[in-house]
Design a protein around this nucleic acid. Structure first.
Lengths: 193, 193
DNA sequence: AAAGTTCTTGAATGATCGTTCAAGATTGTT
DNA sequence: AACAATCTTGAACGATCATTCAAGAACTTT
C-alpha cells in the first residue's frame, strides 16, 4: 500500500475558497488544479469528479462551521451573549472584502438549487443541522430564563437563520458596516424579545 | 428601414425565465436560442452578447417588478395592508415550484457578485430602487399613523428587505408554506411594531 | 535489490461553450 | 420592377470545458 501524498483537508479548504469566490460553474478544473496543487487525475481519483469535490468541500465546510459554532457557545457565560457575538462575527465577515464574506452553503444553494438535486439535498441537510444547533442553544436560553416562551425556540431560530441569510444577501449590495450592525442588532432584539 | 421582427419584451421575458431557472452560467446560448426563438446572430445583434442580454433582462425584470409594486399600493386602503399582501404574495411564490419561486436580481447577484462588476452594479441599483419604493410607502404609513416613529421608515425597510431576501433563501431549503407564512407574519410584526 | 502495487502525471479527447460572419431573405425606396 | 438597406439565418470558429488513461514515479513488500 501507498498512501496519498496530499493533505485532504488542505485541498478541500482550497476548493472551498475557490468555490466561494468564483462560484461552482465558473470554477474550472484548471482553477482547481492551480489552487489545490492536484493534477486532474488525482482529483478524479480522490473525488470522482468536480461535483464530488464540491460535495466533499461542502462536508468539510459544514464540519468547520460546526466547530466554529461550538467555539462560540462553549463558555459558560450567558447564552444570548454568544448569539450576539456570533452575529457580530457574521457582520464583520460580510462587510469585509474577499471570499470569507460569503457562505459556501448559501452561495452553492442559490446557484444549484433545482439543478443538482444531490447537492441541494446535502446543503439543505447542512443548513438543517446548523439550525438545530441554534435551537439547542435557544432551548438552553429558555431554561436559563434569558428568553420567555412567547415564541418557541424553534420559531425564534427560524426567524434568526432567515435573518442571517438575508443579512448576507443585503451585504452584497450595501456592505456598510454601520447599516449591517444596525440590522443585526435589530434582528437580535426581534428574535430575543 | 426595416424593423426587427421579434417582440423585445417577449424575448426578454423568455430570457428572464431561463436565467431564473438555470442561472446565468448554466444557461447556454443554445438554451437562449430555444426559449427566445432567436438565432445567435440576432441575439448578438440586438444585445451585443450574452451579458448584454442578461443586463437587458434585468432591466425588464426591474420594470415589471416596479409595475407589480405600484399595483399593490395603488388602492387607497391602509398602507400596511398592502405590505401584508405583498408579503403573502412573496410567500406563495416562494412555496411553489417552478421558476417564479426565485428573484432574478437575487439569484444573479449571488452568482455574479465580485465576478461581473457591471452586472453587480446594475443589480445593486435595482435593489436600491426597490428599497426606495418601500421607504416611500412606509413614510406614508408614518403620516397615516399606521406606524410610530420608534424607528425611521428607512430602518424599518432595511429590516424588511433583508427579511425578504432571507425568506427566499430559507424557502429553498424548506418550502413548507405554513412555516414561510409564520416567518412572514413575524417579519411583518417586527417591522411594523 | 528486485518485484509488485499504488499513486501521480499531463497530454489527449470529445463535447460544449460564446461568438462571428457571409450568404440568403425580407422590407422599403426609387 | 429594380435597387438599396437591413434583418435573419445557421454553419463554422477557436477557446475552454470536464474527463480519461496510459506511462512514469514512488513506495511497500519480499
Amino acid at each position: 500500500m501507498r498512501s496519498a501524498e496530499f493533505d485532504r483537508e488542505q485541498v478541500l479548504r482550497a476548493a472551498i475558497t475557490a468555490f466561494m469566490t468564483k462560484g461552482y460553474s465558473k470554477t474550472s478544473m484548471q482553477d482547481l488544479k492551480k489552487v489545490t496543487g492536484l493534477h486532474p487525475g488525482s482529483i478524479y481519483c480522490a473525488f470522482k469528479n468536480k461535483q464530488g469535490l464540491l460535495l466533499a468541500a461542502l462536508e468539510q465546510y459544514n464540519e468547520d462551521k460546526a466547530n466554529e459554532f461550538t467555539h462560540y457557545f462553549s463558555g459558560n457565560t450567558q447564552v444570548l451573549t454568544g448569539v450576539k457575538s456570533y452575529l457580530n462575527c457574521t457582520v464583520s465577515a460580510c462587510s469585509q472584502d474577499g471570499p470569507q464574506k460569503n457562505c459556501l452553503s448559501q452561495k452553492a444553494l442559490n446557484e444549484l438549487a433545482e439543478q443538482e438535486p444531490l447537492v441541494e439535498q446535502v446543503i439543505a441537510q447542512n443548513m438543517k443541522q446548523w439550525q438545530e444547533r441554534f435551537v439547542a442553544i435557544f432551548e438552553q436560553a429558555l431554561l436559563n430564563g434569558e428568553i420567555n416562551n412567547s415564541r418557541t425556540p424553534k420559531q425564534r431560530v427560524q426567524s434568526l437563520v432567515m435573518g442571517i441569510y438575508g443579512l448576507r444577501t443585503y451585504a452584497q449590495t450595501d456592505p456598510q458596516i454601520e447599516v449591517l450592525n444596525e440590522l443585526a442588532n435589530q434582528l437580535f432584539d426581534d428574535v430575543t424579545r
